[in-house]
Design a protein around this nucleic acid. Sequence first.
DNA 1: GTCCCCGTTTCACAAAGTTGTCATATTTAT
DNA 2: ATAAATATGACAACTTTGTGAAACGGGGAC
Lengths: 224, 224
Amino acid sequence: MERLKILVVDDESRMRKLVRDFLVKQDFEVIEAEDGEDALNKFYAQKDIALIILDVMMPKINGWDVCKEIRETSKVPIIMLTAKGEESDELQGFNIGADEYISKPFSPKILVARVEAILRRAGKKDEEVLEIGGIKIDRLGHQVLVDEKEVELSYKEFELLTYFIENKGIALSREKILNHVWNYDYFGDARTIDTHVKKLRSKLGQKGEYIKTIWGMGYKFEVE
Amino acid sequence: MERLKILVVDDESRMRKLVRDFLVKQDFEVIEAEDGEDALNKFYAQKDIALIILDVMMPKINGWDVCKEIRETSKVPIIMLTAKGEESDELQGFNIGADEYISKPFSPKILVARVEAILRRAGKKDEEVLEIGGIKIDRLGHQVLVDEKEVELSYKEFELLTYFIENKGIALSREKILNHVWNYDYFGDARTIDTHVKKLRSKLGQKGEYIKTIWGMGYKFEVE
DNA sequence: GTCCCCGTTTCACAAAGTTGTCATATTTAT
DNA sequence: ATAAATATGACAACTTTGTGAAACGGGGAC
């Protein structure tokens, strides 16, 4: 297996070196960029970057803008490094589509753990068939089998179920679901999700119960 | 890990120097500000400040107002330095969202100890799984296991338990709990916490006893 | 172009679950 | 014993979620 490329963007070289050292130890290939402009150039030049780690505070173009710009054309996973307290885009009132936020200061151990979790999930996107608890998703055939019997799902239902299963065991906020299943620039009502969940649950029959409601939070797919 | 930045705000340069010297000795990076205005400017310019030490008595903008202002946008930990008798503001229930109060005169050793305790706690916010005494908190799954069996908690209960465990072994006043689990701008009755503690204890069964009452003070989570 | 079909979204109301408060009981410190 | 603080149970107000129906909207048939 070829080493995966990670783009690390931070204006402080000390910080880049720190992050790089840990990632290299985990056998990733690291590419560094020292500001937003540099980051965009390197990202577009190197088409096979698997993940971006992006500091928020940078001269010229800041991290939020780099993220937004990249999201225009790519769904590459992005981890934002934020200062304490400004971690969430919700707090800023606008959503820019990062996948994770890690607040400084952080331990390198945490960073590496998150990177691996994200890549593991992202890796699922390459698998042709996902299977869990008697539900089989065939991406190529765009088909879902429940206990070997086909269940007809609409496009959105299929995407939603796939997203749930790619992230099984993880509580997903409506915000996050909208970002991934709909799109980073979708501005509709989050309650739309409820309707799709309802239909999914009913089409999955008994197994619809795997989609759990997390009250005050969102949903989670979990097989017992 | 990169050195953490601490913003020290006091109008007396002697005091700043004193505090700075001790913090630098502990390998923190120190940024100084000599009044409230200066403090706000430097805080907003340097986005990765990990903690603020803030004198109350200062010209132009005083410490209380700086704290309130910062709390509008950030959850960065704040330690207030108060002269004898000034804490009354805090005691009178005028709540501005500081994390700690240290009254002058204080020993630098105490200050450093508090700083490190706060930062240690803040670091826990990035850990995905917390585990202690047979209680496991899975943040990603938004799920709590007691002796490997799931216990269903409401949103607030989950937050409260998480806060207790992030601060295990530390006595927490109701004031403090309200500030962190509810919000800095919550003005309800502190007795509300009692009700939530009651429910938490009962849902945790035997292990509910880990939540100890500290008479006249608040609560503390402690495993024997 | 118009009509129709069907997936998607919105909406309004019902249902379910949560949270804060209050009165009362109990415990604790002195 | 007494006063003060905490525990508890019940409940009302409030939020969030579920649901069915209606509105919307794009693409194909005609």
